[in-house]
Design a protein around this nucleic acid. Structure first.
Lengths: 359, 359
DNA sequence: GCAGCGTGTTCAAGCGTTTTAGCAAAATTC
DNA sequence: GAATTTTGCTAAAACGCTTGAACACGCTGC
């Protein structure tokens, strides 16, 4: 008569498939009882320990009991005893604001999953208090480590509490050198690729509309533009570099200045500027890429792929950043402390450049 | 001499602030020892139990010990004993594909946070195996419940294992009635609002370019268009309803047919179609909203807010969907089993309609 | 006939908390 | 000043699992 009130069912002949509706979830003990073995044995069967010797007949019985009861291991208990959880934390400052954070999440999640980790995410939208709470929460859940990410590539301060965990900066880096592992996009290579798309089609006089906003991307993308020209034996001409606010309005507004430069091609700091520029060029009766070839940067799908003509651009590798962050965290990828690891920005060629493909 | 090897520090005079680098995290026991009390007392202090009687002096000593050791409670242990975790699972089928899922995540996370819950997310990108694993993982972590979300509003099958948990469908609903709680956008009201934006400016002959793809949105948005006309005393004219593929190309391609209708305004199934239509109208030398007023649907920020002129549209309330899903899960909002709860799609008015605001 | 071995299984401690019942001392009552 | 109540704290069980040590077998070999 012991444990008669233990659970809803009668211990001898349990329901075909126990469900969440029975107040208490099925435990190892119950499986063990049904199978007529000890909990230790059940545990051994479940975890398929190589050096554990279990009779086939027993293994069978346990497996059946598990199926019959619909047993789910309690990951919390598992974690408690093993000491280290299977969580990786991801704190992001702008999941909602842009599609970019989504990509980082996706990459991190896929990679984490691959190694048996689950993602615990916190979206701070830049709120420092929230951020602190989020990190505290993650520490309490004993995460394996934390990915600290920003929605645009920038230097950042490492929150004090973050240091209590293993962490990697994603899409951002610490201003003080040697302080943190980090992974960022390779802006310079991206800028070079963008420019090369145009050079490859024979363009020699190429304008660059840079952003007015200071950022690693501003410097990097310009640097890439210069390197590409240099490799092609074209002298850098500062007059061909304009600056505008990095959105549609900015691109549109830069149209007049751009036209004065008499270039055959233009590389824009980002896709949104290119989108605005499209409008400006069209209003001036110019066709893309017939009269002028355009490339952007960021590969913001909803824009770049659907402009007419579709925009050649360079991808910000957010997915890869997330994935690489996880790998660095888990020690699978090298992760120098003194400088950020750079991830390539691959070129994406579309119809806004090839002269033989009119709109 | 007991426990001399317990940790790195000497038990009497511990380090000013213990850190993650000391192999073992600080536990309740260590705090208790330092404060010279039992673990029970420390626990009571931490959890500020109202009916616990603790001397101020003791409370003080404990608090100091906690600070000194940099103690972090172990949420796993907590969960083990309480039986239910502070997690809410969110399985999404397209975090990366669109900015929409990001909004759902954001809304869910904010609301969950408000009630002390953390979000455990899994991105399945439509992969059923991944989805099953994700749900299993969540069940093993004993989540309070699961939000099952889709990136566009649609009917869905409820995965078998999902039923083992408390769950709410977000942005989707079960084909079989009475089977699941769900929260979806109110497409009909949205369609009505969109149409009303145009009616309010005096337009009487309004075209609707619907999608060719069957979906709840297709029916709902048309329904809303009809209701709005009816309320305004305008008979519904089926000839004014066109259909096109719901992207930029579709909108662009619909231009000619639209122009034949001789309408003064058009309501597009979504913003992307409107974006394509902008190009088509511009090529025909027509100005927006001077010659023709345009409204979209979805409020896809990166498009709608930055077209020229900015596009009037109706918001898909993804943030609210996520938040409402959490509230329904926690039993804070009513959640009927027999029909989905509908969330309003608020109108967002911009310059693509008001006749007195030329581009 | 027994030491030794391989096999299959269980014992029991422990992971870091929470929480209830209960104990000792101090304070209050009459 | 004994009885009672209040106050401050602790012991110990429990949560569900893992794991190394131990145990009970039946065999083998000598």
């Amino acid at each position: 008569m012991i444990s008669q009130e233990k659970n809803s069912g009668n211990p001898g002949i349990p329901a075909v498939h126990a469900r969440a509706d029975s107040a208490h979830p099925v435990t190892l003990r119950e499986v063990a009882e049904l199978a007529g073995v000890s909990t230790a044995t059940v545990s051994l069967v479940i975890n398929k320990k190589k050096n554990a010797r279990i009779a086939d007949e027993t293994r069978q019985r346990v497996t059946e009991a598990i199926a019959k009861l619909g047993y789910r291991p309690n990951a919390m208990a598992k974690t408690l005893v093993s000491g280290t959880s299977k969580f990786i934390g991801l704190v992001a400052d702008g999941v909602a604001t842009t599609p970019f954070a989504g990509q980082i999440i996706h990459g991190a999640q896929d990679e984490a999953w691959k190694h048996g980790y689950a993602l615990l995410i916190a979206n701070t939208e830049g709120n420092k208090d929230l951020e602190k709470d989020a990190i505290a929460m993650m520490l309490e859940y004993k995460v394996r480590g934390i990915l600290y990410s920003t929605w645009f590539h920038r230097p950042t301060d490492v929150p004090e509490t973050l240091r209590e965990a293993d962490f990697v900066l994603v899409n951002c880096f610490s201003a003080e050198a040697g302080a943190a592992r980090a992974v960022v996009p390779d802006e310079a290579q991206g800028g070079q690729s963008a420019t090369e798309i145009l050079l490859r089609e024979g363009h020699r006089r190429i304008a660059f509309i840079n952003t007015t906003t200071p950022a690693p991307a501003k410097d990097g993308r310009l640097q890439g533009y210069k390197s590409a020209l240099e490799s092609a034996g074209i002298p850098f001409n500062p007059e061909l570099v304009l600056e505008a606010y990095p959105d549609q309005e900015g691109g549109y507004g830069a149209t007049d200045d751009l036209l004065k430069l008499k270039v055959s091609a233009v590389y824009c700091y980002n896709d949104r500027m290119a989108m605005g520029l499209y409008d400006g060029l069209r209003e001036n009766g110019l066709s893309i890429p017939g009269d002028i070839a355009v490339v952007g940067f960021d590969n913001q799908e909803v824009i770049a792929a659907h402009l007419r003509p579709p925009l050649s651009t360079v991808s910000l590798p957010h997915y890869e950043l997330g994935a690489a962050g996880v790998r660095m965290l888990l020690g699978l990828d090298a992760a120098p402390l003194d400088s950020a690891v750079k991830i390539a920005c691959p070129a994406v060629e579309r119809a806004s450049v090839a002269v033989h493909l009119p709109a």
